[in-house]
Nucleic acid binder design. Structure first.
Lengths: 224, 224, 224, 224
DNA sequence: TATGAATGAGGTTTCATTCAT
DNA sequence: AATGAATGAAACCTCATTCAT
């Protein structure tokens, strides 16, 4: 599915050298982990250290930290979008398809990354805005289909879902091999999914956020 | 209602001067707001500014930022504990009592504050450990009572609840007076509560965290 | 004459503490020297070192390096303006008054500081723009008066003068106590002054820069 | 016209390959422009970009930035020297010959480049020292001849001239096609030349720098 | 030989904390 | 006891220089 994603290239359009390409991909991978572990405040130096590269190399690929974070966000959303599309194509409306998508998105677990710079307005680049819109639209399609099938409660929308998923802490264990607490997030998700089944018992206070609220939300950068 | 809470005192046990006492309470209040608004990265200078005090005054009361955060946590937990105790005394087992407690805890909304220094081990002071234990114990009592009454799903425990509540983002609107997105958190909570009703449909993967996991979790300071 | 200059104060208008006030003045003084010696590229750390202060102290008084440079420029221009006004009041038109002003301005010798960030547009703050305009106007008055008296060549204007003075290197000796080369700048100035006497022999190519050219010049920050 | 200049060769004396030779010349040309435009702080990457070469190629020809700058200085001085020699051969002593030389040197306008690393001692290579001496000697010859002819003031010497010419800002316009301010430098030069005519009116303070002062000046690298 | 990717020291800036007033 | 000025470590980012391709 990634074959359609063009490889990252420098501004002038020429393809990167093989090793540089590899480095870029490693940086993205490592940075995603680092930010998921330490939060956005993690230093670039830490990313450099974990990837065995110099800081300068990171800055060669990304003009600044914000852009790096944005690239990760875009990357994650692309993967999520692909997943949603697959679900829509395969079995739209089924509870199984819905939960698979949701679990996948949680699994990407860079979610926690996205309370990026709370309180400070961050300009989102056009590419991020675009993929975000696409993802929300596709997800809303899935939500609607699942609601029509009568298995998802009617009073939530795609944005509610995104908000909830983003709130699930990515990874709990203190020590990497601690399996006991590793899947607390999974328990959380289970409860949440039950709460999402139709029909809901609790009455949700508001009619649900519309596009305007969503845009406003993203504009002031709690995340995504 | 706080008559049971002992007045804050300096280390050597003498009671504070009246104005100092007032300052301390104001700092706690303001800092709670500031951290909820700006996140833990908010500067002490900002707390000083908003409280109209000098930074020195803050440091007179709290040896460092971490301690200040801890005091807030303790303060929040004390209030939560009081609420839980009240619920236990009044009508243990009722769904209404349970939801009231839960809504109150979310309302304190300094929750988000507590992924304090993710990844870095933070020593919790004995007072925090004590109140945390007390709160978890009382909450577990409430959970058990509510489960016995058959209205709360059986496969969750107090720690699951705390984890979930802590994950709900405190306040969403971009602009202070924006009511449209203000209560997304409330929608989130509604869904969550529905998911917590008995009986759950989703099977939760693990037996639920025990005291050992809980301690381990807190020791590495994702929060609280 | 400086009694009219208000003391630098923090944003909220309260006067600075005595020691802070002293520090601020010392920073301005030292920074002026440092930039004159090393150019604009001199590091803030160097300014801190020479003034025996921490870097943070500098940043407490000036939000960033550009602002510090601008403050110095303003300061220098204020002093120059005072000098020009004095000359205008005392004996407008006399060659002696004119040269005194010129020598004074060269003596301030932060001139060299002002090819600040060549090629990069730097926004000048309103205060700088204001004093710059005032200075140029007053200087033009002096130029005109001196020209009317028939001792200054007719085909130059205030901006020409400023440009020339700014070009004189501030201080030549390598070693502080080297008096031999110390006053090469003075020789330069002497030649320049002779070139400025009426009537000029060389025909100057252009009609002389107007306000439009001047503004354009400053906008693209060769200096001042 | 450069037939007297030996072709640049690598350290071991072999002649360069044709393309390498071309590259070297292009680098010198481009670098001279770049430094004149952006100042010494211009990055090597910028030189590489403008010349369409890789940074590595530049470093193949010049071990470091300082050497590149030095080569430019040498190059400029060679051209100036040729000009001076021509003037001496054709019509020594005439004001026209003198001004032609002066205008030519200003026209090379890499002058501004040469306050290279102010305050920092820069070792000048032997080749630079040699050409500098040659140039100063030839220029002094011209100065003396012109003074003997009675048209150049007696109290200046070649070094004064160099210092003055080096101080004229190379190019003023903000935008490349702005002709209005383009020739302010020319006005400056006109005034300067008038100041240099015999006899001077202003008395120049010092006897004029001797060889010792000159060497000292250059040793501490204000320039050239 | 030419390229441009990688490096890392050094500069600017922020902020928790200390301490003179 | 309160204040806020000073400190300096640590973050971000740039760029001269090296080196694998």
């Amino acid at each position: 599915m990634n074959s359609s994603t063009p490889p990252p290239t420098p501004a002038d359009g020429r393809p990167l050298r093989a090793d540089a390409r590899q480095n870029l991909e490693q940086i993205l991978q490592v940075a995603q982990d680092v930010f998921a572990d330490l939060g956005y405040k993690a230093s670039i130096a830490e990313v450099a250290r974990r990837s065995g590269l110099g800081m300068g190399t990171i800055y060669r690929h990304f003009p600044n930290k914000a852009v790096l974070v944005e690239r990760i966000a875009i990357h994650v959303m692309q993967e999520s979008l692909a997943q949603v599309r697959r679900a829509l194509a395969a079995e739209p409306g089924s509870w199984g398809a819905f939960t698979r998508v949701v679990r996948h998105m949680v699994g990407l677990r860079s979610s926690q990354l996205f309370p990026v710079s709370r309180g400070r307005a961050t300009e989102s680049g056009p590419e991020l805005v675009a993929i975000r819109t696409e993802l929300l639209d596709a997800l809303q399609e899935l939500v609607t289909a699942t609601q029509r099938a009568g298995v998802l409660r009617d009073d939530v929308n795609a944005f509610d879902i995104v908000l909830m998923l983003n709130s699930i802490p990515p990874r709990l264990p203190a020590e990497p091999d601690d399996t006991a607490t590793a899947d607390l997030a999974d328990r959380f998700l289970g409860v949440l999914l039950d709460g999402l089944r139709a029909p809901g018992a609790e009455e949700l206070s508001l009619p649900g956020p519309g596009r305007r609220e969503i845009d406003q939300f993203f504009r002031t950068a709690h995340g995504l």
